[in-house]
């Protein structure tokens, strides 16, 4: 059983938003909504500044509050890789999942259902990387199986310092930021 995750090298990321644009066209994300985005976090006083640039999206948490708060089971862990998905035809649009997500990764699609990053599962099932990963001009994103010790992502996570977002939220996110 695979366990899909993503590692993003913040040392390489320039925050160009190509991942955001690629997601938009690949998945037909409607105008005014984004499934992924760029966050820039700067510390310090000019000119001594530390800037971290991150490509962010649904963390596909292993302990996903959106899944546990969903009243219909529309939000679920996919059989493949534990990817968190929404079954649109089961979603009633109650927004509990949105309110429960510490990352604000979800939104209500104009068609009424809760929507978010799917890790491009339709591509992954064809053996491709998610659109954001495959387009990145800096090659800063690695997608893969966290349970496979020989996967590039496992190697990177084993050898490099990294962090995830809001670990105190206790959601066990599967996106990691290499620093």
């Amino acid at each position: 059983m695979a366990r899909y995750g993503m590692a993003i090298d913040t040392k390489l990321c320039v925050g160009c938003m190509d991942c955001v644009v690629a997601c938009k066209t690949e998945n037909n994300v409607p105008e005014g909504y984004n499934r992924d985005w760029i966050t820039e976090e700067a510390f310090g006083k000019f000119p001594n500044i530390n800037l971290e640039i991150r490509s962010e999206r649904c963390n596909h948490c292993e302990n996903a509050p959106c899944v546990s708060s969903c009243p219909t089971g529309a939000s679920h862990y996919h059989d493949i890789g534990g990817v968190v998905l929404v079954e649109y035809n089961e979603c009633i649009g109650c927004k509990a999942c949105i309110a429960s997500c510490p990352y604000d990764a979800r939104f209500i699609h104009p068609d009424g259902y809760a929507d978010k990053c799917t890790f491009c599962i339709h591509r992954v099932e064809e053996g491709k990387d998610p659109a954001c990963v495959s387009v990145c001009p800096t090659n800063c994103m690695i997608f893969g199986d966290l349970d496979d010790p020989n996967s590039e992502i496992s190697k990177q996570l084993n050898s490099r310092k990294h962090h995830s977002l809001k670990p105190v939220a206790g959601t066990n996110p599967k996106i990691f930021y290499l620093t």
Binding site: K11, L12, V14, I49, N50, L51, I53, P137, T138
Partner: peptide, 28 residues
Amino acid sequence: QVQEFAKANKKGATFIVVDPRFSTAASK
């Protein structure tokens, strides 16, 4: 250029950035 910038970065190249503004490149 941006692709190669990232490649050089990965290989450990040194960057010296001169700018009145702390640009993205400055952070690298």
